[in-house]
Write a protein that binds this DNA or RNA. Sequence first.
DNA 1: AGGTCAACCTGAGCGC
DNA 2: TGCGCTCAGGTTGACC
Length: 288
Amino acid sequence: MPELPEVETVMTGLKPALEKHRFTHVETRRKDLRIPFPKDFAKRLNGRKVIKLWRRAKYIMADLDDGETLVIHLGMSGRMAVFARSKSQKLGQFHYDAVPAEPEKHDHVIFDTDAPARITFNDHRRFGLMTLIDTDKIEQHKLFKDIGVEPLSGDFDAAFLKAALKGKKTPIKSALLDQRLIAGLGNIYVCEALWRAQISPKRRASRVKPGEIAPLVKAIKEVLQEAVKAGGSTLRDHKQVHGELGYFQHHFAVYGREKKLCQRADDGIIKRIVQSGRSSFYCPVCQR
DNA sequence: AGGTCAACCTGAGCGC
DNA sequence: TGCGCTCAGGTTGACC
């Protein structure tokens, strides 16, 4: 489900409940997600304080006060919700619901913190994961060693993309989805960025012309920034941590709009094709 | 080495 | 109401 903007939204929403707060109780309600929880996962978190919350690619990172980092991936359907345990029901500037009496179906992990708050991790498809790794070894860790550039950072520019696409025979759609090149793009935002840059998802990556590289970089950055500002896109699963929906889905130009009129080309009808098992939406008239 | 594809899992929506 | 099929924001490992 979540791509960079959704993960960023969730991470930011967790801050009032998590950053500079201590875990008072952690509970796992099954033995694994996509991968098993590390040994003594809940026990190791208990009593730990979160120094800093941040995001890398589609991962939420929580640096702890003992030199470990809690790593969370939401997979396709992962959700996190924050509930207030204080009487005022307020945490920072947001209003949160009170802790429900019973956990919901597929609530796999429950974190209580001294905010005081309860954070639940719900993931019905269980493609998500949680693990603990040494903070000073994140870059070398299996999950992160091959992860590419952050698309909203200064390192992602035309020179970088030009070099990354050079000689690539794979379609541009697949190249942009490759987390080893760019970290955090997913199916929605790649479709949207290619539409903005007027490039067909079927085009060979190496055939993106020099003059199209900078506009494509700009399109990627803009679509991600706008989506972050909108709190991400809610299709079925994504919610912000206090239950509010994201609303960038109302700004989709092509994603999920098969057979609808393209807003740029008068005679363009949005088409859906399948590329490496995923739907691509594009306008065959204005994207070449 | 580079590229493609099925598998992992549950649920929602649709046609019949 | 129910069955069977398709599809879903991601990642990985096996295969050509």
